[in-house]
Design a binder for these strands. Structure first.
Length: 333
DNA sequence: CCTCTTCA
DNA sequence: TGAAGAGGG
């Protein structure tokens, strides 16, 4: 989702400490993979690769992050996207164009030796192909981490699992998670807090947003929150030009959602979008079993197949494999 | 992204 | 002790 709605949620973020919040968390897999693929790159934009040229950035990211999360008592559960809704076709098409344009500009920048531009365009050209998807699922399986295939949007499935109480939160960087009804969303579910932003090093900490706090704070219902999103634009509709979060919120609070839409976008029917956020396709057909990591399998997969150095990965896995039992579930504090 | 090393 | 930078595959 675009940045338009950000302002609605910013005041309701609470910093949290990972060690204080053990439990199962449903993680938006595509969101995570894109992040790794876009960020784990060399200065000229080249991703990490094995000797045959296969991308390994996502494997590095998944391996180190999840082992770290597990050692903190968190049980990651990855939720993968299924078939995107027809409503998303325009957004998907636009994203593809942006990616392809970025890929061409990456090539160009590299030819001309413009490293900084190359890095920027390389990031924007990140794409999840079938090989990346398959290797990600294989690695997660070897780590003993459940992978769930959503019927449609992964964020919707993750939110559903949080609503049912099977996980204590849905983790994603996108605020759509809250539109889908997740009672608790976690952003920046990472270990190391240092991030480089425009050359500056800043600290990013894990944060939690509670849907109830957002709704009470703005004195709106979840349906009205979705109305605000529709006015500013979602993955499923374009939104009204010139209407940002603040204006949209005022419109909705005054009860003018339908009349403003009728005036500005008479051709647009918001009902299918509302319906998708309220009743997205989800499944109850999943399990969250506790499984230990497969030590030998991990060594063979990461080292033999993808060229990771044994001495780097062994000491990371060993303590997890020796662990007797999962830490007991606890409440957020 | 995450880890490790270096250096003030 | 911790911020900054290099390197990972």
């Amino acid at each position: 989702m675009g940045v338009a709605l950000r302002d609605i949620f910013l005041p309701y973020r609470e910093e949290i400490s990972l060690s204080l919040v053990p439990g199962a968390v449903a993680i938006d897999a595509y969101n995570t993979l894109y992040q790794f693929l876009s960020i784990i790159r060399q200065p000229d934009g080249t991703p990490l690769m094995d000797s045959t040229g296969r991308t390994t950035s996502h494997l590095s990211g998944l391996f180190y992050r999840n082992t770290a999360l597990m050692s903190q008592g968190i049980t990651p559960v990855y939720v993968f996207d299924g078939v995107p809704p027809e409503l998303k076709a325009d957004t998907i098409g636009e994203r593809r164009l942006v990616r392809e344009d970025a890929a061409a500009k990456w090539e160009e920048a590299r030819r001309e030796g413009d490293i900084r531009a190359a890095y920027v365009y390389a990031r924007a050209s990140s794409r999840i192909d079938s090989e990346i998807l398959a290797s990600a699922k294989k690695l997660l399986g070897l780590l003993g981490i459940p992978c769930i295939d959503a019927p449609s949007e992964g964020e919707a499935q993750a939110a559903y699992m949080a609503m049912k109480g099977d996980v204590i939160a849905a983790a994603s960087q996108d605020y759509d998670t809250l539109l889908y009804g997740a009672p608790v969303q976690v952003r920046n579910l990472t270990i190391s807090g240092k991030r480089k932003v425009r050359g500056r090093s800043i600290t990013v900490r894990p944060e939690r947003i509670t849907l109830q706090a957002v709704l009470l704070g703005h004195n709106i219902s979840r349906q009205e929150l979705i109305e605000v999103a529709i006015l500013t634009g979602t993955d499923f509709n374009a939104g009204i030009r010139g209407v940002g979060a603040k204006t949209a919120l005022k419109i909705v609070q005054k009860g003018d959602f339908l009349s403003v839409l009728q005036e500005k976008m008479p051709e647009f029917d918001p009902q299918p979008v509302m319906e998708f956020f309220i009743h997205p396709p989800v499944t109850d057909d999943y399990e969250i079993p506790f499984k230990k990591p497969d030590f030998d399998g991990l060594i063979s997969f990461l080292s033999d197949e993808y060229g990771f150095l044994r001495e780097r990965i062994e000491p990371v896995i060993a303590p997890l494999c020796n662990r007797k039992e999962q830490k007991t579930l606890d409440f957020w504090s």
